[in-house]
Design a protein around this nucleic acid. Structure first.
Ligand SMILES: [Zn+2]
Length: 305
DNA sequence: TATGCCGGGTG
DNA sequence: CACCCGGCATA
């Protein structure tokens, strides 16, 4: 709902009604170009620090295009349902075990997202991701309190070389963002890492790593995007916040791109586990433990056993 | 400034 | 362990 990208896209679409364009979704960047080649080159040179030489124009390198249908009117909905760069927890790109359900969901969403809204001139938006998203090694050692989250989604993959022809009013967006330091200790299953497995985990043991964070230092975490309890209910109704929010912890009830069922979310991140324990877990391989229990049913509704 | 939330504190 | 807050990163 508060995706910068979304806004930008919306604006663009509205202003340049029926116009194809590409927008760099790089963290702080927001460059908008009218050509795929242009945006891709921009990404390479500016963000990748690479000097495009030859086939940088075609840019069919490794850009992932995510199609999004938006309405000039209610584009927000269409986009929000997709949340391309949302830092929420959807499906980790690299890990093979990334919820197939979600991955597919993107595609499905893409279509049905605007179904009830299709009335005016629906625009199509393409988000492009690149393979460049270097994935931090297995256990990314974040020296600072870098918060990691699962971001992007690996949805539709359209070779930019396809020279697709934008139907009518279409808006394109190129998204190229750095990877979200997915820890993936060794046995952590991303499947359930959606609810609480996230967070920062730094195996103190490791001191030397290969590719430390770079990319204009953007592994900062970018704070949760979706409106959290606080913003929704306000300080006035603090008692309505989820426990986590009340305790100034990571909100666990309101998620941007992963609307959980109206189930009563339990306070702690995991049933039978407290924040305190969690903290201990963090910083050690205990993180693994967190990943083991309650896999099938993340937010085990209170009944842990 | 407002918000999200980690790390630390208290009973 | 439930609960809260300082303080920081971020928007
Ligand atoms: Zn909350």
């Amino acid at each position: 709902m508060a995706l910068p990208l979304k806004d930008a896209c919306v604006t663009r679409a509205t202003h340049n009604s029926m116009k194809v364009m590409f927008k760099c979704l790089w963290k702080n960047c927001g460059k908008v170009l009218s050509t795929a080649a242009g945006i891709q080159r921009h990404i390479r040179t500016v963000h990748l620090g690479r000097n495009c030489d030859s086939e940088c124009s075609d840019g069919e390198e490794d850009f992932y295009y995510t199609e999004i249908k938006l309405n000039t009117d209610s584009v927000a909905d269409g986009l929000s349902s997709l949340s391309p760069v949302s830092p929420s927890v959807l499906s980790p790109p690299p890990p093979p075990t990334s919820d197939p359900r979600h991955s597919d969901m993107n595609g499905a969403k893409t279509e049905s997202s605007t179904t009830p809204l299709s009335r005016s001139a629906p625009s199509t938006l393409y988000l492009v991701h690149t393979d460049h998203a270097y994935q931090v090694p297995s256990f990314a050692t974040v020296t600072e309190r870098t918060h990691i989250r699962t971001p992007a989604t690996a949805p539709v993959t359209i070779p930019s070389s396809t020279n697709f022809t934008p139907s009518s009013c279409s808006s394109f967006s190129i998204s190229w963002q750095s990877p979200p330091v997915t820890f993936t200790g060794t046995s952590a299953s991303p499947t359930h890492s959606r609810t609480q497995s996230f967070g920062e985990q730094r195996p103190q043991s490791i001191a030397v790593l290969s590719s430390p964070p770079r990319a204009s230092g953007s592994l900062r975490k970018s704070r949760g995007e979706g409106k959290k309890c606080r913003k929704v209910y306000g300080m006035e109704n603090r008692d309505m916040w989820c426990t986590a929010c009340r305790w100034k912890k990571a909100c666990q009830s309101i998620t941007p791109t992963d609307p959980y069922p109206p189930t009563s979310y339990f306070p702690p991140p995991s049933p039978g586990m407290s924040w305190n324990f969690l903290r201990c877990a963090r910083g050690s391989r205990a993180a693994q433990l967190l990943s083991s229990p309650a896999v099938g049913a993340p937010f085990g509704s209170g009944a842990a056993n």
